[in-house]
Amino acid sequence: MGQLTHAQLRRLDEHKYSCTSSSLMDPMMQKWWCWLVDQCSRTLAPNLITITGLLINIVTSLLLVYYSPDAKQEVPRWACFLCALGLFTYQSLDAIDGKQARRTGTSSPLGELFDHGCDSLSTVFVSIGVCCSVRLGTHPYWMFFQCMMAVTLFYCAHWQTYVSGTLRFGFIDVTEAQFGVMAIHIISVIFGSSFWSLKGTSVLSPVVPLIFILAPAILIAWKSPDGLYLQNPTIYLLTFGCVSARITNRLVVAHMTKSEMAYSDASLLGPGSLFLNQYFNCPIPEQILLYIVCVYVIYDLIKYCREVCLEICNHLNIMLFTIVPKCPTGTKASVEKNGSSSKYMTRSKSKVKNN
């Protein structure tokens, strides 16, 4: 017995592709995609276009894996450039296969399945490739989270399609994410993959945590269907302000202790939860989640400041809010084990010598 039943194959004849998109970058890329498909021969099969793009993406991603199999070593800059170019090639070919099918009158359910099947495999290689580019293997649990999150989001997008019957692309979706990955590779080309180390002492390394704050703050406010920032400006600014204060305090500590600046921070979970809630069409009311996140980041900031202050007080043997009185240096007498002062003992010794 095959993978599909006769009933499934019969119902496949009734399937109609349905898709809606509010993507920010798709309209800007349409001119390039339309020009590119016009350069293709009408005898070129759409599925051949798809598989060609996937193979290029896989080869360029495996190139990074070759140089950094555990995602800990610094990869050559030219390899990062090829990986970015490979992803752009895959994105372009993946965008024109459907256009080629409609252009040649060869649209079929097989083409849709083949396209999404290749996308599911590409997601894995893109995730692994970007981990190698930023040396995320130095923090294996973050690497696991990033890869699993990528494949989970892809699955959930098609789960939503299964339920609603329509594949929906949001304002910030696949195209934008792919350009984001390309940008990461290009930054690795310019500055080297060590730039992305989760702990860095370079001049540019503190910029990365700032980006982790500003980018979600802008995107969440912009994309919010309920006008989250406009309806709650003070709570919104307080939330992201506390996250910024937490990161700034860590930067000050890194400066004063002459240590590395860590990029990861627990306070970033707050903005991350707001972003994911929007991605899944706000199953939790945005205003309620904003208040929860605000309480969390305030608590996290207070907890961090308290622990740092207490650790420094313990190390320096000082009090945080009180002053311990000190004896004046001129009147201090060193006391010996028998309770006599060194001054008294000196006088006693001089009397013995005179006698």
Rank of each mutant, 00 (worst) to 15 (best):
M1R: 12
H15G: 03
K16E: 15
K16W: 03
Y17F: 13
T20S: 15
S21I: 00
S21C: 11
S22E: 13
L24P: 00
W33S: 01
A45R: 07
G53R: 00
S61F: 05
W78Y: 12
L82P: 01
T89V: 12
G98S: 11
G98L: 06
G105A: 03
T106V: 04
P109K: 05
G111C: 10
F114S: 03
D115L: 02
D115T: 01
G129L: 02
C131N: 10
C132A: 13
S133K: 00
S133H: 03
F145N: 12
A150G: 08
V151T: 15
F154I: 09
Y155D: 05
W159V: 06
W159D: 04
Y162V: 04
G165F: 09
R168Y: 13
I172F: 15
E176W: 03
Q178M: 12
V181C: 11
G192V: 13
S193P: 05
L198D: 01
K199Y: 10
G200T: 04
V207I: 15
V207M: 14
V207N: 09
P209C: 02
I211G: 10
F212C: 14
F212I: 04
L219I: 10
I220W: 01
I220E: 01
W222K: 11
T234Y: 13
T239K: 01
T239A: 11
A245P: 00
R250P: 06
E260A: 15
M261W: 02
M261Q: 07
D265E: 08
D265N: 14
P271L: 12
P283W: 00
L289W: 08
Y296W: 09
V297Y: 01
V297Q: 05
Y304I: 04
E307Y: 09
C309A: 14
I312V: 15
I312K: 14
T322S: 12
P328C: 03
P328F: 03
G339L: 05
K353I: 08
K353Y: 03
K353P: 00
N355D: 08
